[in-house]
Structure formats: C-alpha cells, structure tokens
Amino acid sequence: MFSLFHQCVSWVRQKAQNALLAVLAAGPIPKHIAFVMDGNRRYARMNKKIVQQGHSDGFLALRRMLEVCLRLGVQCVSAYAFSIENFKREPAEVDALMNLAEEKLLELCQHGDLLDEYGVRLHIIGRKELLPESVQAVARKAEEMTQHNDRAILNLCMPYTSRDEMTTAVESTVRKALDSDDYSSAEITEKDIDAQMMTSLAKSPPLDILIRTSGVRRLSDFLLWQCCENTQLQFTSTYWPDFGLLEFVPVILDFQRKVWYQQVTARKLL
C-alpha cells in the first residue's frame, strides 16, 4: 500500500517537473551552464554523514541537474569537479574523490545511461596528467565512449584551474604564431586566445550562466576567462547535494528576463 502511494507521488512529481520544464522551455534557454559544486563537506557535516558520502550525494546532484539541463535543451554543461588546488586536501579525501571519479565516470557513459540517452559528449577539461594513472585511463575510455555523441556537451573540469587554462591558451597561441610565417604577432587578439581555451577546443558555446552553491561568493579560479563578459553569476546558499529544480527555476527566470531586456535594448538601438 505504502509502495503504491510512493509510486503515485513519484509519478505526479515527475509529471509536474516535466510540465514545469516545458513551460520554461517556451522562453529563451541558456546554451551553456556551469556549476561550482560547492558544499559537499558542509552538507555531510550538517547531516552527520562522512565526507565521502557528501561527495557521493554531490555526484547524484550533478546527475540530477545534468538531466534537468538536458531536458530543458541546454547544449553544454560544465562542472568544476576537482581543482588543481584540491590536491592540498587530506590524502584520504583526495583518494576517495579519485575513486568516486573512477567508478562514476564509466557508469555515466555506459550504454543506456544518461550521456548515451541524451547524446552527450564528455570532455575532461584540465591537467589530466596530474590524475592517478588509473583515473586517466578511465577518463580516456569515458571520452572515447561518448566521442560520437553530438547533441550536447558535458565538460567535467578535473583537475582544473582557470589560470592554468589561460596560461596554456597563451602558450598555445604563441607557439602557433611562432610556427606560422604568416601569423604575425601583431595580429594576435583575444579571439585567438579564446580559440585555444580548453572549453573552446571542446566546442563549448559561450558561457551564459555560472552557478556557485553553498553561499560562497567567489569564482575560485573557475572559468574566469569565460565568465567575465555577459555571463550571469548566480550565488546560492544551498549546499550542492541539496541543489535542485526549486533553486534552478529562479536562475532560468532571471536569465530569460535578461535576454528579453537585451532584446528590447537592441531594438531601441536600431
């Protein structure tokens, strides 16, 4: 009896969610959303769970939000999974995070799972060579498994920092210029550097929204280049594992309001 009631509630909830997403999709939808998944450890402490459980719940939240974004028609989702700076954490926690990545990456890419269902291509963005060999192998395999998907993109940033990405992009641009006789140094512009950004190489559209959870109001070296112009920054006090549709809807409404305002402004200028 209880199981039947639970199934009914779940069915109604699913239908309501689908209806809400269909309503939101009637307005402008962002092409690229990025998440700084902050607050797993504080969530674990608050709920008297071990830190590793907080990270596992954080992965479930990523899955949940990824599905919401894909249903909404968002073309690209970027997630800050692990910073280069995070290697400073306790070895036990770093190991647990690496194990989680190893276990969940393949699961996410398997036939019939989320990325396969929605035709999402996975890119691991960052200094992959800093990852343990076993995680590197899994990352390579996961990328290969989704390389023919072309309906959406998931950028999993690990281990990543934006300054490292910008430095690498400048280095590549300079090397490219030195390599080509026609490529005069005077012609290098921000567009050339932008083209060498890891997210650009992964064919990601410009970043529309960056969401950071857990009340922290910093970018913490994430997508600094991508978010400094015309990107909606959204800081919410909810811890990442608790982040869901309820917190996400106002973000999309704010985005739509901004797009409509830009359209009105553009019409006035014409």
């Binding site: 910093r218 600094l224 978010c227 400094c228 959204q234 309001r257």
Partner: peptide
Amino acid sequence: AELPLELYGFPPWQMRLTEIS
C-alpha cells in the same frame, strides 16, 4: 526588475579569489 549579477568585462586574471559583493 533586477537584472542578474555580471562582471561587465572586468579583467579575468585578477578575479581568481576575489569576493564578489
């Protein structure tokens, strides 16, 4: 109505650990 928070092209390199108010 209030528009969302943006950085209006503020130099990205220097924004690494900046608290945003």
